[in-house]
Design a binder for these strands. Structure first.
Length: 470
RNA sequence: CGGGGUGUAGCUCAGCCUGGUAGAGCAUCAGCUUUGGGAGCUGAGGGUCGCGAGUUCGAAUCCCGCCGCCCCGACCA
């Protein structure tokens, strides 16, 4: 096939209707008009979906199941996924972690070194390449990152180091369910810290702990760190971050005071983070497998005892020399002695969070996105496409909001008003700017706040000022 | 992996028990009428009834095998 000359691409806009300024690979801003978009919403609820996030993601045209626990991400879902990914990335970077990208397909040999090739059960998807070499679709990446580390880092002077990646993983769950909340293929942020000793590792752990608080807060979630099982390693350095939702997978118990504890926000990640961590780990909080009813009642006054369902959205873990020792990831210490590096790993289920956010934020009509990750932040609804006044006002609004750096979706289709309202409520943009001929005759448009349902009539100019400023 | 379901039009489902030419609503397309919270009328298109092998004159329906998907449990980011 003959490819067009390169400058054909260079000169042609990727989408004829979209000025170059629209293009943004991070999806942080990509205004769209519905007539040119792909938004296959469904009125009926597919029978296979049981929980609300799964139902709403299917109905809103965010995903399509391709096989059990494996999904196609449709445009609307992909936008949210990318926006969550970007929030996670920014907070990892802020906490000093450095992004890499590791392969999805890994060599079995690495896993034999750590001993996990045999230890990992049927959840690991084992595959063979054409040379009959044993490969696998990575369920996690400790081995790969340890291999990277040992190849390049030899001295304590290069520590601390935290490498993370955001990559698709595969775990061949016996029973995938809850849509993307427990798929087999899932997008995960996994970070790996490397330190000279346990004290250094604890500081690394605290940085991720705080980064997680900030990350989930930016996603509009109240995430509570709960002590998790540390397994054979022991110690107190493992926490699951749990969001509360009625459909949560596990029962959790905690002190109510933890629920509304504010995120730390701007902190010095290389200062002392221990007080921040302590403030959130001294109060009682446990998942059912770690729960101690007697201790719960002893430590938490009855009025503050909270028993609820929770969804795990993050997990941080210190595991010391578990991988560095068998894989010989050693560093030279200041004392001239070579020793295995101390490691920790820190996961966030990025694709799971899409479902998790919906579980935590929806109503009968559909999804209610937090502004930070909404696929579109403003839905501009032209109630009567084809009406000259409505068209002009809607186009003006769309252009102004785009220019103001917002991320609007313009519904310029000729569907009926009721259909438009239902669709926009379903896909959950935080604000709807409703423009119709009747309002324009009176000189007003309407702003509807999705979360509260509050509507306000005001002039187009005032509406644009308000929505541009946010 | 144990237990229980289910598979019929894009979606939700009826028909299966008791075998006899494939159905409804929504969606799609055309036309007309409508137009501020999922419109109405008329017409049209759309299905190897999951796959395979049986029984039978005849199978969506009965028998056997396989596969997919869902739910409960165990397991899990």
């Amino acid at each position: 096939m003959q490819w067009p000359p390169h400058d054909t691409y260079a000169s042609a806009p990727l989408c004829p209707s979209a000025p170059a300024v629209y293009l943004d690979a991070s999806f942080s801003r990509m205004p769209m008009r519905l007539s040119r978009y792909f938004l296959p919403v469904m009125r009926d609820t597919p029978a296979e979906a049981q929980i609300v996030s799964h139902r709403l993601m299917l109905r809103a045209g965010m995903i399509r199941q391709q096989a059990a626990g494996i999904y196609v991400w449709l445009p609307l879902g992909l936008r949210v996924l990318k926006k969550i990914e970007q929030v996670v990335r920014e907070e990892q970077n802020r906490a000093g972690a450095v992004e890499i990208l590791m392969p999805t397909i890994q060599s079995a040999d690495l896993w034999r070194e750590s001993g996990r090739y045999e230890a990992y059960g049927a959840e690991m998807l084992r595959i063979q390449d054409r040379h009959e070499r044993a490969m696998l679709f990575g369920p996690t990446a400790e081995e790969v990152v340890t291999d990277v580390f040992r190849a390049f880092v030899k001295s304590y002077r290069d520590l601390p180091l935290n490498l993370y990646n955001i990559q698709w993983k595969f775990r061949d769950e016996v029973r995938p369910r809850f849509g993307v909340m427990r798929g087999r293929e899932f997008l995960m942020k996994d970070a790996y810290s490397f330190d000279l000793d346990e004290a250094g590792a604890r500081a690394a752990y605290n940085r991720m702990f705080v980064a997680y608080l900030n990350t989930f807060a930016r996603l509009g979630l109240k995430a509570i760190p709960m002590r998790a099982d540390t397994g054979p390693i022991g110690g107190d350095l493992s926490h699951e971050f749990i969001i509360l939702a009625e459909t949560g997978e596990s029962q959790v118990f905690c002190d109510r005071d933890l629920v509304d504890m504010a995120a730390p926000g701007d902190v010095d990640f290389y200062g002392d983070l221990q007080p921040i961590v302590d403030a959130r780990t001294t109060l009682y909080a446990a998942t059912d497998d770690m729960h101690d009813a007697a201790e719960f009642e002893k430590r938490v006054p009855e009025s503050r005892r909270l028993s609820a369902r929770g969804i795990e959205v993050g997990h941080i873990f210190y595991f010391g020399e578990k991988y560095s020792k068998p894989m010989k990831a050693n560093v030279m210490g200041p004392d001239g002695q070579e020793k295995p590096v101390h490691m920790g790993s820190y996961g966030i289920g990025v694709s799971r969070l899409v479902g998790g956010v919906i579980e935590a934020s929806h109503d009968e009509a559909g999804i209610i996105w937090p502004e930070s990750i909404a696929p579109f932040d403003i839905a501009v609804v032209n109630l009567k496409a084809g009406d000259a006044n409505a068209d002009a006002a809607a186009e003006q609004a769309y252009a102004a909001l785009t220019k103001a750096g917002r991320d609007p979706l313009l519904d310029d289709t000729d569907a009926r008003p009721g259909t438009k309202f239902s669709t926009m409520d379903l896909i959950g943009a935080p604000y709807q700017l409703i423009i119709g001929p009747k309002g324009l005759e009176k000189g007003v448009v309407e702003i509807k706040t999705r979360k509260t349902g509050a509507r306000e009539e005001l002039s187009l100019e005032a509406a644009l000022n308000r929505l541009s400023a946010a």
